[in-house]
């Protein structure tokens, strides 16, 4: 992802930049509102997500937020705030932020919210793979029900993709385990059952079922009534 980090606190900005770059994101850093507006005006088509601190030394981050939204470009905005009052957060969402993170936060949470914010601004492509009543977009790894995006967690999405790739056949449990956790990760033996159960719950309203093939694995099926 191409990111713009707008954060004035040096320690925090350094740590965030290091983490984001290690995670493979191309990240620009603006320590002031003026610098952020400079980045935005010169490369407005380039950014996927802007990580925006609200309290900046030369003004409120909301000024940039409004400017970005006024442009109409599909850029995600994740606001960082230290403010505890929820009305501030509600206001931020009202003026166009996709999500907010209250300081302090864990890096894992930042990653999870970045992914979710990025997904929100992906438009439904013209060509998708139809799975029952759902449409799967392999390029952006998104699942659609009509114009609405289905919110699947990372592990659920991997599981869904693996089941689609089985192309109507059943997928072995060991294969799915490797796809979800790789070879190095420790995970409990029932992890796949839990994720299958959660995916099943999310797919059920759309007429899809994940059927258990006893002693072997799982198979994605379109319910006859679905």
């Amino acid at each position: 992802m191409r990111l713009l980090l707008v954060e004035d606190t040096e320690d925090l900005a350094d740590a965030l930049l290091k983490h984001l770059r290690q995670a493979g994101h191309t990240t620009d850093h603006a320590p002031t509102l003026k610098a952020a507006e400079g980045f935005w005006s010169s490369e407005r088509d380039a950014y996927d997500v802007i990580i925006l601190d609200i309290e900046l030394p030369d003004g409120e981050g909301t000024a940039l937020l409004k400017e970005v939204r006024a442009s109409g470009l599909p850029v995600g905005i994740l606001v960082l705030t230290a403010r505890s009052e929820v009305e501030d957060k509600v206001y931020l969402l009202d003026v166009g932020a996709d999500d907010y993170l209250t300081k302090p936060f864990a890096l894992d949470e930042l990653d999870a919210r970045l992914r979710a914010v990025k997904r929100r601004h992906i438009a439904k492509p013209l060509i998708t793979q139809q799975v029952g009543s759902l449409a799967y977009d392999p390029t952006n790894r998104t699942v659609w029900s009509g114009p609405e995006q289905l919110q699947l967690r990372s592990q659920e999405l991997k599981l869904f993709e693996s089941l689609i790739q089985a192309n109507g056949w059943s997928a072995a449990k060991e294969f799915l385990f490797d796809r979800l956790y790789g070879l190095d990760q420790d995970a409990s033996a029932n992890a796949i059952e839990v994720h299958v159960s959660r995916l099943r719950r999310k797919l059920a309203p759309y007429g899809l079922d994940v059927e258990t093939i006893r002693g072997y694995g799982y198979q994605l099926k379109v319910r006859s009534d679905g």
Binding site: T9, D11, L12, A15, L16, K18, H19, Q22, E55, A82, R83, S84, E85, T102, K103, P104, F105, A106, L107
Partner: peptide, 25 residues
């Protein structure tokens, strides 16, 4: 006071936490 305390306390804690998480790796 709440707004100031929130900003003054949470931002350095956020930096500490983040650096510790990076250090762990």
């Amino acid at each position: 006071f709440i707004a100031e305390a929130t900003h003054q306390i949470k931002t350095p804690i956020a930096a500490i936490l983040m650096r510790a998480e990076l250090l762990e790796r």
